[in-house]
Design a protein around this nucleic acid. Sequence first.
DNA 1: GCGACAG
DNA 2: ATCTTGTCGC
Length: 244
Amino acid sequence: MEAGPSSKPRKVPPGLIEQWKACQAELRARLVIESLTEIPRFVAGADACFDEVGGRVIACALVWDRRERKVVDLAQSVRPLEFPYVPTFLSFREAPAVTEAIQRLSHPFGVVCFDGQGYAHPRRCGLATHVGVSLDVPAIGCAKSRLIGTHEEPGIEAGSSSPLTHAGEQIGLVLRTRSATKPIYASIGHRVDLASVRQVLLACCTRYRIPEPTRLADIEVAKMKKTLGFENSELGKSDPHPAP
DNA sequence: GCGACAG
DNA sequence: ATCTTGTCGC
Ligand SMILES: [Mg+2]
């Protein structure tokens, strides 16, 4: 078997890395920072997971209704896995599928949260900024761990935070969403400011450390992977969705 | 050169 | 992210 155009490169060539850096620079130049006029009732969330064996990126996007505390819209996307994970270039692995899932949403939303960094990135263009700018939609980076930057330990109570700093600039917020639990790394994606980021994320937290939009998207994507895996196994040969 | 390093 | 069940602590 020869490596076809759809097979995943084991290593990313230096030339492509340079191309990616140029792409991030262009997107970064289009980033807009502004205050959200209101904390939106409908907040979207997106996430992706990987099926290395099947060579697929499985993504989903959903809209969370803060008032009714329920998901009002759900969209998905499955695309070929093109690249391996390369630190600071996560978006080139996830963005295509995640972007498509967001575009498939039919219900309107005021802002979309991503499972990763936004401005808190070496070139200020993490996943949230990458997708937010390309779709020109308000976006927030909601990462579970740190990529770059330094910070003090936030207060132990829920709602407390400390600035995330890099190269003498504040790039995000280390936010404690739940008392006595590990904080999250929040940053600007696009068309929002840090004050809005903090308000939206805290307003989306219920009983968990991770805000609902991103937490539910993560769960959904795991279900999708499980289902797709079963449909392709020896046992799932019969059509799961028979047409009448 | 060495260690860090979103998901 | 992924490989994986029960167990410890607030
Ligand atoms: Mg994820």
